[in-house]
Design a protein around this nucleic acid. Structure first.
Lengths: 219, 219
DNA sequence: GCTCTAAGTAACTGACTAGTTACGCGTGAG
DNA sequence: CTCACGCGTAACTAGTCAGTTACTTAGAGC
């Protein structure tokens, strides 16, 4: 029997099919949650057959695990490319805070996937043994900036890098994560460009204002 | 036909049935999300018949709207009972930050429900016209503390109450919301009492350290 | 050019799910 | 007392879902 024209166009390409499924899964899981996501919807968006999802990823939950691994890998690898060692401590910290804020802004799916995973109490993430190693450079990176700042006499002493990172991420994450409910309860369009620019400035001011020994956010 | 003994025990009580359904809905929606929640599960947990959910609340989504209204009402009404006017500005701010942190700690369902609602971009919350009025006292409360602090010369000038609230909430919310993924990626039990106490102190130090003109969190 | 393995497809299935139907019964107003 | 209305129940339905089966086809290795 003749192959249909449509089938003739789509050549075999296992790697690309896997990639397309993963990208579609990021889209659908982040917009619908884990329970709300439909495997059929992921297959359709990927332009792949549903059977291929089970072939490459096992089941819906394992596909979600692969999604988490991919998105964590993305943010952490971009973070490592910042080359903060080339900047003075204050500029380095400002850049880290800005990057973190803008990463959340530019990658809303990351926030939604993390919120979904926390709904399930990190059950999927816990099955990824490499995830912890992936985050050790981040802690080291922050510790290095803090140490340099303390040595230069510009940062306060005794700040825990992990606590600080949670605060840096928190002031940005919460804004982006809850922009819909916050805009509604306060009656302000917090998703508008002006509001986001204002928030970015506030967040940088906030972190630097806390860290600097003279208490200002100016550098 | 004779009524069963079990049915005889359960007397009619519309108010209590509504309450039980709402409480069960908070439990199930917060642990399973909106898509993951099963109407049958809510009915069973409420000890009510599924038909009663449709009788009192219309459908699953409208039930979720009632849940949001109930939980927002709870946090905001408790906030108003803090009587922060009786405290000096620094003590008042410290108490507001502590309350906010401990409210999230003691009400994990609140965080999970808000995350779920943000997944749906506040579609349900937007149908509650009273929600904005419910939050005006909060903004006013924070503004009053800030104004008193500036007048007393202990707080920096020009801080936007809404931006500040988002930061106060953010540094606590993110910690509690993402405690599962953060504990996993950093390999620390952030849900343990010691870690929570440390975080609470850090958060208070952080907000006060930013606000105070001398840059310390000490009062 | 043949064969074997893996990529890919379509139709299917059993379990589940939101919402409905039809009816029984408790209670308070008159 | 009584009866209408609203509380409450069980069984049902139409549709949906994750995962499977049975199959075809592409292409690498010989």
């Amino acid at each position: 029997m003749m192959r249909s024209p449509a089938a003739a166009v789509a050549k075999r390409n296992p790697e690309q099919t896997k990639e397309r499924i993963l990208a579609a899964a990021i889209d659908v899981f982040s917009s619908q949650g884990l329970s709300g996501a439909r495997v059929d919807a992921i297959a359709e968006r990927a332009g792949a057959n549903k059977r291929m999802i089970y072939h490459y990823f096992g089941n819906k939950d394992q596909l979600f695990v692969h999604v988490l691994e991919a998105v964590y890998g993305h943010i952490r690898s971009h973070e490592r490319e910042l080359r903060l060692d080339d900047l003075d401590p204050i500029a380095a910290m400002r850049e880290l805070v800005r990057y973190t804020f803008d990463y959340f802004l530019g990658n809303p799916h990351f926030i939604k996937l993390l919120n979904t995973e926390n709904l399930y109490e990190a059950a999927h993430l816990k099955t990824l043994p490499a995830i912890r190693d992936m985050h050790m450079p981040l802690t080291a990176q922050i510790k290095a900036i803090l140490d340099r700042g303390v040595a230069a006499g510009v940062f306060r002493n005794g700040v825990d890098p992990v606590q600080l990172y949670i605060s840096i991420a928190g002031v940005g994450y919460f804004y982006h994560s809850n922009v819909y409910t916050l805009s509604t309860i306060f009656g302000r369009p917090l998703g508008a460009k002006d509001a986001i620019d204002e928030r970015r400035a506030h967040v940088i001011d906030f972190i630097l204002g806390y860290l600097r020994v003279d208490g200002t956010g100016n550098g």
